[in-house]
Amino acid sequence: MRRVKYFPEVMEIEAYVYTAGPVGTKWLEALKAGKLMAAYCPKCGRLFLPPKMYCPYDFEEVKELREIAPVGVVESYTVIERDFNGEPLKEKRVLAFIKFPGVEGGLIHYVKADKPRIGMRVRPKWRDERRGLVTDIEYFEEA
């Protein structure tokens, strides 16, 4: 007996629309204005990224953001050479985890550098047209 072996399924949802929460929204608005901010916990005094309305360390409410110096340090990086299926990328991309002095956490983002290294100081390259997304920073470049 013959069989139909496969049956296709596509999730056809057009789009999800994610909101960033009261603190996250302020953060995105700051990005749109070309400013880098971090969440500030009034209880433990920590600054942290990415921002949330609660402090991940002590579970207290967070309402405030504070502007931070937009100079970060590369904590780790990778040069992505191939896509998930093993095909070589047209252009290698450097993905990094970037920390900011005095701030817990940090940002995962692209770095434009020929020879990235751990400990490298980087600053954001802002896009001219910004929408309030983490990609308003096009990439980080050596400071």
């Binding site: 596509v10 999730m11 057009e14 789009a15 960033a20 929204t25 309030g132």
Partner: peptide, 15 residues
Amino acid sequence: FPVFEFPVVGKARYN
């Protein structure tokens, strides 16, 4: 206010 609109079309395909 800023939101992230994430298109899903074609991103969750199964066979």
